[in-house]
Design a protein around this nucleic acid. Structure first.
Length: 793
DNA sequence: TCGAGAATTGTTTTT
DNA sequence: CAATTCTCGA
């Protein structure tokens, strides 16, 4: 038998050897699915003689992709590095960069994150003169995202619309898409939708990818949504060598459009599917696994399977009840300290349902000097200062992203106010110019309503951009970022502020510069910048997690998917928090079931020791809420649990306020419907609220408020590190714009936004060539050559 | 134009 | 409670 197969159990081996045709692997938690996938890839290469570039493996996070590539490399040397391993999103970006022009985008289109999405959405609502209260951008982004996840466009939205409001929303959707295109931008969902569109509209393009990617593997299949399913279906249609790995019990992204039906549809679309079940767990002790099995068995809609292990029973699962959220955090962190000889800090993880819960744990870590790593919350790349610098870079990279230009036009302060910006935006809208082009016009005094004073300020802004642009060809990426920070006056403004906050911002900027330094430093390397911007947009929080560091990990249950830790704490096991009040209020059992799967995911992260904790009362939105034990706890048989009441002086457990709240954190009766597990119900004895609130006032821990503790600089580590992705990025499709336009008067040209037209004049302006084009659709326009990116046809 | 202070508002989970 | 948006005076 081949060496590769020897280390696998018979079922795993079967999964590895089933290389041809569609395969569905139902892999329970900890059953070695990553092992199967990596070995399968290695097997394809070394035993079946498949070329590495004929293999595509899609993972959920960049971190998982890196890990998988590494492990494959270990199994079959350098060939492993040539396998295409990436997330759905980065896979699509890579394809789109090559073919964007077919969709009316430029090859270095920008990617909008959820903040940008919201900003754009607000603007669309405003431009349609609708009431922003009636049409909240959050809800709209949610709807648009849901449509896109289901692979539907504005026309579908119009068809589905029943009433006035729905028609309006469809109209907003349509407009939003137009604005994205005008800004040469795609949101996260567009990356998938547009790739699918590309494949459908250009069968030749699809065929070339089908030709190349003959073996396709998808990890975390239970979390794919409809667009993602279309995407892989199209790619795999020709060779049908598609292998998906998933666990319906770990499907926790329903809110993002993930659909378990994809598992069923898989067997419909790909006939003759070979189904393989991996049920042996190699990760956890028997007690932990039993606990997980008991909890998940309360779900009705699931494919029946039972995980087993031949590991020892291990400790019982701890359940600890605390008086308050503060006590809970204190208890967990001190427990970690006390046991640090059995479990190193780096072996411990604290998991919770909501990001808001992290603060308490963070404070306690700071207080006791426990090294920790906070994953999630505010993403590094979403921080204001980082987004500002990125906006500068985007502006230098094309200036068609109106949001980016507007973001930095007055950052740092240069006296360009809201009024001017609005004027410019209106002018740009009227004349169908980009915002940046409008700025150029205003600087030349061509925009009515912009004062001479404002015009001067705009000119100096333009000369800054101009200056940076011209430096670009002689600087490496790192120097370019530094130049942006220095020349713009951004660094100086922060230095002058002299606050701890500004200091932190500067540190973050330094960190961004460090990241930039990891890219090729060839002067004027366009690709480096484009790639940098792209990775910055697609990076996830878990991607920055480095388990070699000896730090306690704090993160949400969602973030923990796919990871494992010897010691796991799950905090906040209370009705209304976990399961969340949201899932309880819909009254739909499916929503509770998703929460239960989340609980199952959390439990199965633990290898050796699991502790569940809850608090009888906790601060939520500034008010004290009383909680009762989560139903998930009550679904665990008593003999698996080690209960401990950690309440201390002053609170009689089960008594005191017990007459109102039942038994505090006590066990709820089985079978009853906990509509208000203390959360969500508005009045629960106000006098008691007051009393306990006062108690908090004494207890509050102000130490970690502002000062960023040294442990907090957790993001300096782990490089962005998918440099290997670049190997496949292919050649640059960009024209060199340094030596003037490559078209002349009378030539026919294409503009991304305005379509085709004829060049009627070219004149050399002081900062750029100004080209006048007579467009077929919209008539004559004067454009700046370097930003218009006109293409000769 | 811009800052300070007031008012308001919000809570799931994320590529 | 904390973060964001709004309002108003200079």
């Amino acid at each position: 038998m081949s060496e590769l197969l020897e280390s696998l159990n018979p079922v795993q081996r079967e999964a590895v050897e089933a290389t041809e045709g569609p395969v569905l692997i139902l892999a329970g938690a900890g059953s070695g699915k990553t092992r199967v996938l990596t070995h399968r890839i290695a097997y394809l290469i070394s035993e079946r003689g498949v070329a590495p570039w004929n293999i595509l493996a899609i993972t959920f996070t960049n971190k998982a992709a890196d890990e998988m590539r590494e492990r494959v490399e270990r199994l079959c040397d350098e060939d492993g590095g040539k396998v295409w391993v990436a997330t759905f999103h980065s896979t699509c970006v890579r394809i789109l960069r090559q073919q964007a022009e077919l969709l009316g985008y430029s090859p270095n289109f920008t990617i909008y994150d959820s903040d940008d999405q919201k900003t754009l959405m607000k603007r669309v609502v405003k431009s349609l003169e609708l009431d922003p209260k009636m049409y909240g951008e959050k809800m709209l982004c949610g709807k648009v995202s849901a449509w896109k996840n289901a692979c539907k466009g504005p026309d579908d939205a119009f068809k589905e619309a029943g009433d006035f409001r729905e028609r309006k929303i469809a109209e907003i959707f349509e407009n939003y898409q137009k604005q994205l295109l005008a800004n040469d931008a795609m949101d996260f969902d567009d990356l998938l939708v547009n790739t699918v569109r590309l494949f459908k509209e250009h069968p030749d393009v699809l065929a070339s990818y089908q030709q190349r990617l003959r073996y396709i593997m998808v990890d975390e299949y239970q979390d794919t949504n409809t667009v993602q399913f279309y995407f892989i279906s199209l790619l795999a249609a020709a060779h049908r060598n598609i292998c998906v790995v998933g666990d319906d019990d770990q499907s926790i992204y329903g809110f993002r459009g993930a659909d378990i039906r994809n598992i069923l549809d898989f067997e419909k679309v790909f006939t003759g599917v070979k189904v393989i079940k991996l049920e042996q767990n190699y990760r956890s002790t028997k007690n932990i696994l039993d606990t997980a099995n008991h909890v998940i068995s309360h779900n009705f809609s699931r494919k029946s399977k039972t995980l087993w292990t031949d590991h020892e029973a291990g400790d019982r699962v701890d359940l600890r009840e605390y008086d308050t959220g503060y006590d809970e955090a204190e208890g967990v962190i001190t427990d970690i300290m006390e046991n640090r000889r059995s479990f190193a800090y780096g072996e411990c993880a604290v998991l919770y349902r909501t990001n808001a819960q992290s603060r308490l744990f963070e404070e306690k870590c700071v207080m006791y000097g426990v090294p920790y790593k906070l994953v999630g919350g505010v993403n590094f790349y979403q921080r204001r200062e980082i987004k500002d610098v990125i906006a500068y870079l985007k502006t230098l990279d094309g200036a068609r992203d109106d949001l980016a230009v507007q973001r930095i036009i007055n950052v740092p302060k240069r006296g360009i106010g809201q009024t001017t910006v609005t004027r410019l935006a209106d002018f740009a809208g009227e004349k169908e110019l980009s915002f940046f082009e409008a700025v150029c016009c205003a600087s030349a005094g061509e925009v009515p309503g912009v004062s001479a004073g404002a015009s001067t300020k705009l000119t100096s802004f333009l000369s800054l951009i101009d200056q940076l642009s011209s430096m670009r060809s002689s600087l490496g990426l790192k120097e370019l970022v530094e130049a942006v920070v220095d020349r713009s006056g951004y660094r100086k403004e922060l230095q002058d502020e002299k606050t701890v906050e500004a200091e932190t911002r500067l540190e973050n900027i330094e960190e961004l510069i460090n990241k930039a330094a990891e890219y090729p430093d060839t002067p004027g390397d366009r690709e480096a910048l484009t790639q940098f911007l792209e990775e910055v947009a697609l990076i996830a929080d878990v991607d920055t997690l480095d388990e070699d560091e000896n730090r306690v990990v704090l993160m949400t249950l969602h973030g923990a998917k796919g990871l494992e830790f010897p010691r796991v704490y799950i905090a906040g096991m209370e009705e209304g928090l976990f399961p969340s009040i949201m899932s309880m209020n819909t009254g739909r059992e499916e929503d509770i079931e998703e929460e239960r799967r989340l609980c199952y995911v959390g439990i199965t992260r633990a290898k050796k020791k699991l502790t569940l904790t809850c608090a009888r009362q906790r601060m939520v939105n500034g008010e004290t809420r009383f909680g009762i034990e989560s139903r998930f706890v009550s679904e665990i048989p008593d003999d698996l649990l080690e209960r401990r009441n950690e309440g201390k002086g002053g609170f009689a457990p089960g008594g005191g306020y017990g007459s109102r709240t039942g038994r505090g954190c006590g066990r709820p009766e089985k079978g009853s419907n906990f509509k208000f597990g203390g959360y969500g119900s508005s009045s629960y004895g106000n006098s008691l609220d007051d009393y306990y609130s006062y108690d908090y006032g004494v207890r509050r821990e102000p130490s970690a408020r502002y000062g960023q503790p040294s442990q907090r600089i957790t993001r300096t580590d782990s490089s962005i590190s998918s440099g290997s992705v670049s190997a496949y990025m292919g050649k640059s499709l960009m024209a060199d714009k340094s030596s003037g336009p490559d078209y002349g008067v009378g030539d026919r040209v294409r503009h991304v936004k305005f379509g085709e037209g004829i060049v009627t004049a070219i004149e050399e302006g002081k900062r750029d060539f100004e080209v006048t084009v007579d467009f077929d659709r919209i008539g004559s326009k004067k454009l700046f050559a370097s930003f218009a990116k006109l293409q000769k046809i």
